[in-house]
Design a protein around this nucleic acid. Sequence first.
DNA 1: CCCATCAGTTAAGCTGTACTTAACTGAGCA
DNA 2: TGCTCAGTTAAGTACAGCTTAACTGATGGG
Lengths: 312, 312
Amino acid sequence: MSSRLPPLTALRAFDAAARHMSFAQAAAELNVTPAALSFQIKSLEAHLGAPLFRRLNRAVELTEAGKALSTGAAEGFQTLAGAWRAAQRTQDTQTLTVTAGPAFTAKWLAPRLYEFAQAHPKVELRFAASLTLADLTRDNIDVAIRFSDSTSPDLYSLPLAEEWVMPVMTPALAAQYPTVESLHNAPLLFDESISFLKVPVDWSDWFNAMGAPFNPKLGPRFSQSDHAIDAALAGVGAVMGRRALVIKDLAEGRLVAPFPTALATGARFSFLCVKGMETRQQIAAFRDWILEEIKKTAQITENLTILEPSHS
Amino acid sequence: MSSRLPPLTALRAFDAAARHMSFAQAAAELNVTPAALSFQIKSLEAHLGAPLFRRLNRAVELTEAGKALSTGAAEGFQTLAGAWRAAQRTQDTQTLTVTAGPAFTAKWLAPRLYEFAQAHPKVELRFAASLTLADLTRDNIDVAIRFSDSTSPDLYSLPLAEEWVMPVMTPALAAQYPTVESLHNAPLLFDESISFLKVPVDWSDWFNAMGAPFNPKLGPRFSQSDHAIDAALAGVGAVMGRRALVIKDLAEGRLVAPFPTALATGARFSFLCVKGMETRQQIAAFRDWILEEIKKTAQITENLTILEPSHS
DNA sequence: CCCATCAGTTAAGCTGTACTTAACTGAGCA
DNA sequence: TGCTCAGTTAAGTACAGCTTAACTGATGGG
C-alpha cells in the first residue's frame, strides 16, 4: 500500500465532489476554481493508482473505488466537523444546549427555566426535546437528561433522584375521593409511556400495594406523560404521576397526593455530558442548579412510603 | 465561528499529538520534525482562539477544548483511513475477505473451500469468523454472511436459502431407530444456538409436528451448532440440524435424515456487501459460486415436507 | 446546422503553507 | 553545575495548492 492516508486536501476535494456529483459545485463549496479541484482529484487518483470518477459527457459518476471511498470519507469529515464544533463550543460560556424527553422538558425544565435564568443571567439555555439522541458531540448537545442504562466510558454520568410514581390529582378531586376504595370510582387517567420504565407500574399495581386490589381498564389514555399530567391539572382525573414530573405541582399545591404511598420504579434520570466537560462553567452551573432544585423538593418525599416493586 | 473546518494538516497533527500525548512522538509518527508539529498545533490553536494543550514541564495535557476535539478527531481520521483502505481494496482483485458465524464458517464455507479454490485459483480467500461485525468498510471485510434483519440502505443484500431444521444422524444410528416413536429413546443432542433464530424450534416442536408429542429434556447441550453437528457426525446422537450446516453431510451420506419432515424457521442467511461492490470481480464470483453451491443441493430439499412454524 | 454553453482538463506561473535546520528555554536529574 | 529531554522560536526554503487563461468536446436551442 502506498501510504496510510492520502493527502487530506485532496480527500476533502473528493468528498465534496462525491457529495455533489459535480466538480464545479464542489469547487464552489470549497471556494476554489474548478481547475484546482480537478487537480486534487487527479492527485488522489494517482495516489490510489486508479480512477475514482468516470468522466461522462456532462456528468461524472463514481467508479467502484470511488463508491468505496465516498461513504466513509463523508462520514469521516462529518465526524471531524462535529469534533471541531465541539471544541469551538467549549470556548462559548454563554450558551448551553440541553436535551431531554418531551415530558421532562415540559414538566421539569420549562417551569424552572425562569429561576435558572435569574440565577445565571449570562447563560443562554437552548432545548432540544427528543426521545433518542445518540451522539452528543455530533449534534452539538452539551447536556442530556435521560433514563440511562448503558453509560459509555466517555460519558460523564450523574444519577439524579429516583423516579417513583403515585396517584396525584387536584385538591378538589381529592376531596371527593377520601379513601383508597373510593378512588376505585374516580376517573383514572392512564399514562402509557410509563410502560417504558424498567419496572412498569400502573394503577393496578398501586391498588394492589395498598391492599385494595382493583384492575381498572377504562379511562383516558395518554401516550406522553406530560399530557396525562396536564389533564390531571385540569381536574379531569387522577393520574399515576412520576416524581420528576409532578413534584413542582405538588410543592405548589396545584396537585395533591392524598395517599402518601409511592411505588419505586428502579429508574432514575441521569445528568449526562461528555467526560471532562462537566467542569465547563455553564455545565457545572447547570448540574449544581439541578441538584439544588431536587434538594428543594426533598422534604415532600420524606413523608412518603416508597414501596419497592414486587418481583413476584 | 471562524470556518467550517480547520486546516486539515493541523488537525491531523493534533490528532497524533493527542493520541501519543507527546509532540515528539507525534512528529515521529508523521515523519516531520518536532518544530513543524509545534507550529501546526499553534496554528490550530490560533484558529480556535484557545489553547488545546497545557504545556507542562516534561509533558503536555489536553485542555477542555482539546478533550472535546480529541475523541472526534481520532474517530474521524480512523474513519477516513478505513475508507481509504476500502478504496485501495477495490484495486485488489486477488483477495476476498469473508465474515460469517463460526458455525457457517466451519460447516459450510470450510468444507467447500477447496472447490472454490479450484474454480477461482487466483482469488485468495480470507475468513473472519465472528458473531457480530458492525462495519464492513471499517474492518476491511468484503462480504458478510449473516442472518440479517436490518438491512441498512447502503448494503447490498441477497437472501440465500431458507433455513429449516430437521433431525439428522449417522446412518448407523438411524438404523436403530426406524420410527418417530422409537426416536424418543434415541440419544438427542441439543443445539442451544437455535434459540437465536427468529422462530426457535427444537426437538419438542418437531415431535409435536410429527404427531408424536414428546418433550425431551435430557441430552448433551452445545452452545454452537457446529459442535452439535460434529457430535452427531461422531455417532453420539441425533441433532436438529440446520439446513446450511448439514446439507453437505446429507448429500454425501455422512448423515441421513430418516424422517423427511423439516420445520421452517423463517430465518435465512443473506449475502451482504457494501452497495456497489457486488460487481467487483471476486465478490461477484463468490456470490455466484454460493448460489451455484446451494442449487447443487436443492434436490435434497425437494423430497422434504417443510412445515411452517405453528404460530399458536 | 451551427454556435453558445456547460463541465471538465491542461498549461504556466504565483503565493503562502508546511517543512527544514539551528539556536533557544527551562525543568529535572546525576 | 552541567547534561538531557521536550517543546518553542527564528530564518530560510521548497513545493503543494491556488489562480488565470486557453482548450476540448459534447449538448442543445434557435
